[in-house]
Each structure stands twice: as C-alpha cells, then as structure tokens.
Design a protein around this nucleic acid. Structure first.
Lengths: 222, 222
DNA sequence: CATAAAGGCTCCTCCAAGGGGAGAGTCAAG
DNA sequence: CTTGACTCTCCCCTTGGAGGAGCCTTTATG
C-alpha cells in the first residue's frame, strides 16, 4: 500500500509542505517516486514519520532527529527512548503548571512572589535537570517516598491515588453539606480509608489516625 | 528593585538576545532605560515575562502573545486562562504518550498498526488550533465565570488523586517514623497540601482543615 | 587614579522550519 | 476530451531568535 503526499498529510496531521521539506533535507525520502515525479510513501515511511513526530514533540532539531534515526534501526529501541524523553517533557510541563498555580495563589493574596520561584520550569536544560533533582528531593522529603524514577508499581499507585482522592472528595463533600447529617457516612468513609491503608502496607490503626489528626491541630495557624 | 538584562536572563532562563528581541518587537519593553542606554526591568516586567513564557510554552506566536497581553491587564485572569491551556497541552502530550505505548505493543507483537491510530495526538493539530481560537475569543469576550466546573477534567482529576495519595503516604510515613522528629517536615507537608487544594478550587483554609481534623477526632473508636 | 574584567549597546548577518504562491504537468471521472 | 482535484519545482518570505564585530559603561582592585 502506497500513499500520496495528501494521504500521508491527512493521516499524520503534517502538511504537504512539511513532507516536501523532509524529502528535501533527506529526513524522510519517499519509498518510491512515480514516473510523473509523485512522491509515494509506504508503511516503513509512515513509521519513520511517526518517529519524527515523536521527536519533534520534544523540539529536537530535524538535523538531530535525522542522526538519531540513522544511528538506530530498531524501532522498539527508538520508541523506548522516545517514551522516556516524552515523560521528562511531561514532567517539565507539570512543573510549569505548578509554577503557574503558585503564581495564582500569590496573585490572589496580593503578595509578591520570589523571583526565582516565578520561573521554575522554564530554565535551560541543565538548570532544568537540577530542578528535577530538587523536585525529587522535595517530594522525597515531604512525602517520604520516591515518585521519581525507581520501579513504581503503577497500577498500585493508581489504586492508592484513586482511593485517596475518593476519600478526600468524600470528606470535602461531607464538610460542605454539613457534617451533622452525615455522621454515619463519614464514619464509614474513615473506616474504609483505614481498611484501605491497612490493606496496602500502611499499618495505621484508628488510634494512629486520630493521633495524626490531633497532630494537625497544632498547626491551625499555618 | 530593578534588574539588568543579565539578571533577568538568569532568573528566567531566557537569553539576553531574547530580551533584546522582545524589546525590539515591543513585546517586553524595559520599565526604564539608564542614561547609558541599559535596559532595566522591574517587577511588573518580570510578571509580564512570566506570562510570555507561559504562552510560549504553548507555541503561540509572539505577535499573538502581545495582543493577548495587551487586551488583558488582570494578572489573575491571564493566569487562569493560561492554566486551562496548559492543561489541555498536557492532555495532548498524554495522548501522544499513549500512542507511543500502543506502538510499542504493536512493535513487540510484530503486527502492523492501524495507520490512523499511529498518529493519534498528532492529527489533532487543527482541532488544537481551533481550541486555541475559541479560547482567544473566550478571553476577549469575558472571563468572569471561569470558575464553574462543568465537565470532569480527567487529567486534572488524576493530578488531584496523585497529590492526595502523596500527601497520605507522606503523612503515614511521618507517623511511622515518629512525628516528633519531623515537626517542620509535617508542617510543610500540610502547608503544601493546603496550597494544592487551594490551587484546585477547594477554598479550604487552614482553619477549615483543622475543623475537619477535629471532626475526625470524634471517631477515635471506630 | 588607572586599568582590566565584565557587562552592556547597536547593527549586521545567518539559520531553521517551513508557508505562500506562480506556473506547469498529471490523473480520474463524466 | 475536458474539468477539477492533485502534484511538481522554484523562488521569495517569515518567525524567533543566535553569533559576532566594534564600541561604550560599570565595577573591582592594586
């Protein structure tokens, strides 16, 4: 099966101009050229284009993409390294979003923000990696465990996260609607939460939980 | 406090050349120019630069960024709309990553992948631009009622869940290791948690949070 | 005070990654 | 065989800066 420029363009979302360009610079030559000079692309080329788009999502210069693709012919290996880079990119984006949210809080309060903090996430690559380190340290220190690069059991994490979110949302709802009417509901909510925690390696008794909440009370004036 | 080009550059991660450029095109004029012709930037300019960088993260052309910033002088409104766009961007990135993972599965199995599916997340450029257009219209008209959360934002939900899980795990860890040694750490944990909640539309003050935990105490005997 | 290093300015050229459009050939259907 | 949708090449244009030359300003130091 061979595709014309327009078909490839429609499939991939790139423009015909871009395909011309990629041909000209030798990044994506068509598999075949018809007698009339029409570019025709096959499956291999579609795969290569997909690789190119993944790399482009990371803002790599085309020249570098070309070298990367020429150096590595194993599609699976390319995909794996691209995945890692895209995840880093996502983390960067998340840092930017966190920065934005911090800025909103400061803007609302009318305070001025630390100038360094204002630009977290925008730094250049090196500073960016440092920031990631710092972030990981921050997470480690504040939340007591690695969210970073170690082997994390993702489904397990997701399950925990879903439970925690459900618990938090449930509590929030209970608070909004007035606790008095919902004693039983909240009791069950807390109970389930404790069961869940215990079922996931957190040996947390109700008494401990109460101690935790007592502890919170010391910090009313945060 | 005024900053020279180099200082702004270091703070923000932009180059001096970029600052020159933004001055030349009128996107970010310095607040003041010294007798010797040196550019000097104040806090307002840093904030504007931050806005610019947020928009640039979305690949908006500088010309459009200029118009957007000129049309809107309320920092909080700008930040709110930028947050929405960045979340959409993150969603797009997540789609791309999903596509990549799907591709890995196919590559491993040796099967060929549906050509449409191969480019999920990329093909969306048009829809993405339309969304931006729509958003621009939105910001031009009014942004008074952006607080109403209509549909459920799935990535947003996931982030909330992850934060809640991290918070819970952190607290559990702190409990296990003994709270006394970690007062400051826990204080910060709670503080960050509150910041996070506030950043996500839960108008929860420290006092409210304390009230909530007080409530927990009634259930010591679960 | 002199002097050097570091930082700043303008002006000019260059680059990547395409976009726009002209002018002309090609293909498929009626 | 004509028409409309596609395609080709060629050339110039644009965006968002980067690099460097040549010259001025500020600051630290002996």
């Amino acid at each position: 099966m061979l595709y014309t420029v327009k078909e490839v363009s429609n499939l991939s979302g790139t423009t015909i101009k871009t395909l011309h360009h990629y041909h000209k610079i030798g990044l994506l030559p068509p598999s075949e050229i018809s007698e009339a000079g029409y570019r025709l692309y096959g499956t291999k080329e579609l795969e290569r284009l997909q690789h190119i788009l993944f790399y482009r999502e990371l803002d790599l210069p085309l020249e570098q993409i070309k070298r990367l693709l020429e150096g590595e012919s194993d599609r699976l290996a390319v995909l794996a390294s691209q995945e890692e880079l895209l995840l880093r990119r996502k983390e960067r984006l998340e840092t930017v979003i966190r920065t934005l949210r911090q800025s909103k809080i400061y803007a609302r309060s009318g305070e001025t923000m630390n100038q360094r903090e204002m630009f977290k996430g925008f730094e250049n690559e090196e500073a960016w990696k440092e920031a990631l380190e710092e972030h990981n340290r921050h997470i480690r220190e504040n939340y007591g465990h690695e969210l970073g690069n170690d082997a994390i059991d993702v489904p397990e994490m997701n399950e925990q996260a879903a439970e925690a979110a459900a618990f938090m949302n449930g509590m929030a709802e209970a608070l909004r609607e007035g606790l008095k009417h919902r004693d039983d509901q909240v009791r069950e909510l807390v109970h389930n939460h404790l069961l869940f925690l215990n079922g996931h390696g957190h040996a947390l008794s109700a008494a401990d939980f109460a101690a935790q909440t007592e502890f919170f009370l010391k910090y009313k004036n945060l």
